[in-house]
Amino acid sequence: MKRLLREVAAPVQLALLALGLASLLLLLFGESPYHVGKALLRGAFASRDDLARTLAGAVPLIFTGLAVAIPFRAGLFNIGAEGQLILAGFAAGVTATVFADLSPIALMPLVMLIAMLVAMIPAGIAGWMRSRIGIHEVIATILLNFIIYSLVMWLLRVESFGLMAGMEPKTAEIPLGIRLGEAIPGTGIGVALVFAVLIAVVAEVVLFRTKPGLMLRARGGNPRAAESVGVRSGRVILGSMLVGGALASFAGTQQVLEVHHSYIEGFSPGYGFTGIAVALLGANRPLGVVLAGLFFAVLRSGAFAMDALAGIPREAVGLLEVLIILLVASELIRGSFRKARAGTAGGVA
């Protein structure tokens, strides 16, 4: 517990530092950080709808954060969460349409399962390439992202598949029965958010209290030492990437089941990449990822209001993500707080 507190302290300080730097930047451009901040917070929290949107917005970030953090603990960089979640969202949309006649109780798990399995394919390919051929997973996952973007665009448009609903690049609306709502009515806390937190808790336990988690972190901390105590590197690589793909899939599925109620082309504003910032800020700890996911969700959700009320383009929030990544990644800056990272990512090989 003490260790958890210590691990959480550093990222919080870094997030504050990043916000401080951002405020400084605003001052430099003659904007008032106070007004901008107020606009941002108002956008995120003002009404019940705003709050609900903010909380729902944390779900994909928590999942992509986990999808990056778990492989990271194994010493791998899953930059493919974006492609994985798009593929999953598409699979979810299609499955829900094709099997729309099934009862919701059967359809829901089916949708999630198929989306998960489909998203695990590219993650598995990247893991396989890393463990068998030594191709760095950053290269493989990025290339796979581009392949997935094109593939899904094409599949959506193949006329004989009839996936497109009219002229818009989206699948048909999913049945009402599998649309996700609030877990506790009136709070804005959705079923998906509860599920996300649950998954994070499970991930926390697996990572820090079980043998597979021990082996995974050992391989991330020192692959050669892990090997000599009998950890099979190839299995950890493939396994953690598959888990990463599965976690990313939940982000895509949630977007379809809770937010858009169909697969819409371009639904992801880069959740997969924000996941990197979420994972790093969360110190690659599942529970830290939950907090970091909420933090970024507030920023993203408030960004529209900030744009409208304070005139700061909402894309500026993206720069804050980058700033946080750089701060967390810089050993010297981080070291001056405390060392809190799991393992090294290794060179391109």
């Binding site: 990197i276 910032a277 720069l319 750089l326 967390v328 990644a329 810089s330 800056i333």
Partner: peptide
């Protein structure tokens, strides 16, 4: 970042790429 601040090279690179992606869009807009 990599040499003097000892940032992880891969993370720093990814950060630069994200910076470029959102930064250029921001610049287009501004």
């Amino acid at each position: 970042a990599c040499i003097y601040l000892r940032a992880d090279h891969v993370i720093s690179g990814i950060a630069v790429n994200m910076f470029a992606a959102s930064g250029t869009i921001l610049l287009l807009k501004v």
